[in-house]
Design a protein around this nucleic acid. Structure first.
Length: 557
RNA sequence: GGCCCCAUCGUCUAGCGGCUAGGACACCAGGUUCUCAACCUGGUAACGGGAGUUCGAUUCUCCCUGGGGUCACCA
């Protein structure tokens, strides 16, 4: 039997890391067994679906190196003989099976209004009982059903669940038996004519010849529904494996809402009353939306707005979606590696591996049953290791591509050789592809934008010692000005000579004042590289301004 | 609350009746260093609790506790 797995996202958002892990496992399971991976878009909820979102999914999967054999066409990929792969395009298929079930008496029309059902649900909740549909619609006579359908009254179709216990067999979790009555007569076709998830998934998995269903654990109980449907429809049952969820370190579910949470907390902490403005001076968020968002934790801003506001306030949002990790400068192979490790292990002490290894070794019996907390520190450490393992050429190429997409100001400001110097200086210290840029923003600032906040390390560098750093800075300036070439090697030669003469050979005495002068603070890449990247003109201009500004504030120091 | 599932260092995990309970990240200490990192060396740290089964339980069973999932015309 050919192994066929499927990844079946609903296109209601971006690809979340949890989804990415599911996709990765599906991919690895199929690839390691000469099987196929089917990508199917579960867009039966018309309110929440958009084409853009499903396209985003495919781009993210592509970036991760997860390729599929059948599915929506993307570039050269996709297609297949079991399509269409958008559920919204498969309505006639579902309708046929739906009608069959109704004709056989295995399903029935129900006319309960959402309000009625809601009320009953609430009552059940108050009575501290699980809600079960009361089969009110079964009391209706055939004639009455006909009449109401003919009158065009809104209705759904419910499955008549057999009154028996159901045993779920799961390759990850083992067996579980739900007592009779636990699964009620659930809706299989909504009033708008679309099938519910449960119905579509059962039909499609069978028609697409899916042999193994690997999906998130939140579907575990749903499996019972899928099993009774398969029995009623006479469809084969795939093998199931339910994957535990991925959590934040604090135990909460990792979700896109975390971004709102972080931003809201920052806004509150900094007592920000009004929404920040965009470049035209218009508020990024309308005043009323902003104020409800600030006060109501259940309200979310859309992703774009959220990111614009965060950027305006210089708040960094947590990475949740695959696209977030890409923008933050993580390598796709590292993300895959790390994700694979959250819920699976090779069985020995081996932790670093690529997707090919995963495909070769992945199996369901080593999948963890417990939820994993997502440890960003470890991910970061893995990413650092991967970067440090690169050749300077590779790193340069990736950093350049990253900058072109996310940090264009560095491409504009730095010439080829300066950019290269920045990369070489950053290789051994960068945890991400973004770090050479994010921590060195002073490099692309205008010379007169640097300001010097006299913090403790700055005070130490500039005002302490005999002579003071500021005095040494003034002395070294002409040395730098006299240089005809301004590459790191020439600067090093000149500065080293200067240090021998004026600072007892202690490079730190002059490196720190220079660093503060050109960057505004005590942190930068190695000083010779930093100066070379900035170029002679900027270095001299910044030293001059620094001497001017700090000389005025020195008495207070 | 009903039903279902789960339980090893702070975190991700190895372990599948007998181990000094292993690794990785984080953390701590020391070293290196022009800053920050990175790097090197060493260290702290776990079987949730209680009954059984057994010569012997981290490992098997039960109970408790704790955690998770689910209870939509969302997937």
């Amino acid at each position: 039997m050919t192994v066929v797995t499927r990844f079946a996202p609903s296109p209601s958002g971006n690809l979340h890391v949890g989804g990415a892990r599911t996709a990765l496992y599906c991919w690895a399971f199929a690839r390691g067994r000469d099987g196929r991976l089917v990508l199917r878009i579960e867009d039966t909820d018309r309110k929440r679906s958009s084409d853009a979102a499903s396209l985003g999914f495919m781009t993210d999967l592509d970036w991760l190196g997860i390729d599929w054999d059948e599915g929506p066409v993307q570039g050269e990929r996709g297609g297949g003989s079991h399509g269409p792969y958008f559920q919204s395009e498969r309505l006639p298929i579902y309708t046929e099976h739906l009608e069959r079930l109704v004709a056989e008496g295995k399903a029935y029309h129900a006319f309960d209004t959402p309000e009625e059902l809601d009320a009953k649900r609430k009552a059940a909740r108050q009575a501290k009982e699980a809600y079960r549909y009361d089969r009110a619609a079964l009391e209706l006579s055939a004639e009455e059903v006909e009449a109401r359908l003919a009158a065009g009254e809104p209705s759904v179709i419910r499955f008549r669940t057999p009154d028996a216990a159901i045993t779920i067999v799961d390759e990850v979790l083992g067996e579980a038996t739900l007592p009779a009555g636990e699964v009620d007569d659930f809706v299989i076709r909504k009033a708008d004519g679309y099938p519910t998830y449960h119905f579509a998934v059962v039909i499609d998995d069978a028609m697409m010849e899916v042999s193994h269903v690997l999906r998130a654990q939140e579907h575990f109980n749903n499996t019972a529904k899928h099993m009774v449907l398969q029995d009623a429809l006479g469809l084969p049952r795939p093998v199931y494996g339910h994957l535990s969820l991925i959590f934040n370190p604090d135990g909460s579910k990792m979700s896109k809402r975390d971004k709102d949470k972080v931003l809201r907390a920052a806004v509150k902490e900094r007592s920000i009353e009004d929404a920040p403005n965009d470049s035209n001076g218009e508020p990024l968020v309308a005043a009323d939306v902003w104020s409800t968002w600030r006060g109501d934790k259940s309200v979310q801003l859309d992703l774009d707005t959220l990111e614009q506001v965060a950027a305006a306030l210089d708040v960094s949002l947590p990475e949740i979606n695959v696209a977030d990790f890409r923008r933050s400068g993580y390598l796709p192979e590292v993300l895959c590696n790390f994700l694979a490790l959250n819920g699976w292990s090779a069985g020995d002490d081996l932790e670093k591996f690529d997707n090919a290894f995963l495909a070769e070794r992945f199996d369901l019996d080593r999948v963890q049953k417990t939820p994993a907390k997502f440890d960003r520190d470890k991910l970061l450490a893995f990413n650092l290791d991967a970067i440090q393992g690169m050749s300077p050429e590779t790193f340069h190429g990736l950093a350049r591509a990253h900058a072109a997409e996310f940090r264009p100001e560095f491409i504009e400001r730095l010439d080829e050789s300066q950019f290269r110097t920045l990369c070489d200086a950053s290789l051994e210290r960068s945890k991400t592809l973004d770090e050479p840029f994010s921590v060195n923003r002073f490099l692309v600032a205008a010379d007169d934008e640097i300001d010097w906040v006299v913090t403790k390390p700055v005070r130490k560098a500039m005002f302490k010692g005999e002579p003071t750093g500021l005095e040494l800075l003034a002395k070294v300036r002409p040395v730098l000005e006299g240089l005809s070439g301004f590459d790191a090697a020439s600067i090093e030669t000149a500065i080293t000579g200067f240090v021998e003469e004026h600072a007892e050979g202690n490079l730190g005495r002059i490196a720190q004042p220079l660093r503060v002068a050109v960057s505004g603070g005590p942190i930068s890449p190695p000083i010779f590289d930093t100066l070379a990247i900035l170029g002679q003109r900027a270095v001299l201009a910044r030293i001059d301004r620094c001497l001017e500004v700090l000389s005025e504030s020195s008495p207070a120091g």
